[in-house]
């Protein structure tokens, strides 16, 4: 479970990065630099209950071609409890236009777990293949 949470975190970063990359591909043949933030800075607390040490970690600010991506994550009892985006690609004109979406009637967001009670659940019954692929690649990078 803890591994999954860390993986999700890595996938998050990958998502933001890939999104910028995909958008950039349609705009320009330039190859964006490949780099991933390492959650090592700002370690405030070292007590641990699992694989990951408690505290708040700020990742590197990474150039995602149309802007920088930087996240801050909070670990409690060895689990990632929060991920905040300190920077995301919105500070340059090109990316601001992209973030306003190509199709004006649609909106976008990063999916987020909800804890509130529900009466019914709508959804597919099994984990998606695409996620397994993405997770595997993320785990390889996390090693």
């Amino acid at each position: 479970m803890k591994k999954l949470l860390l993986s999700l975190f890595v996938v998050f970063l990958f998502v933001i990065y890939s999104l910028s990359k995909n958008q950039s591909l349609s705009q320009s043949p330039a190859t964006p630099p490949i780099a991933f933030p390492s959650p090592t800075a700002d370690r405030t607390n070292n007590s641990s209950n699992g694989n990951y040490k408690n505290g708040q970690y700020t990742g590197d600010s990474v150039d995602a071609f149309y802007g920088n991506v930087q996240v801050q994550t909070t670990v409690q009892n060895g689990k990632i409890t929060d991920v905040q985006f300190l920077q995301y690609p919105s500070d340059r004109m090109t990316s601001r236009m992209i973030n306003m979406q190509a199709i004006p009637m649609l909106k976008q967001e990063v999916i987020q777990a909800q804890n509130a009670n529900v009466d019914i659940v709508s959804g597919a019954t099994d984990t998606s293949q695409a996620f397994i692929q993405s997770l595997t690649s993320a785990l390889n990078q996390a090693k």
């Binding site: 999954l4 019914i120 659940v121 709508s122 959804g123 984990t127 998606s128």
Partner: peptide, 18 residues
Amino acid sequence: KWRVGIRNPFNRNENIKI
């Protein structure tokens, strides 16, 4: 109103929207 969760396609034990 009825509360319907949309299942997280990456984790079947989780909802990502209500």
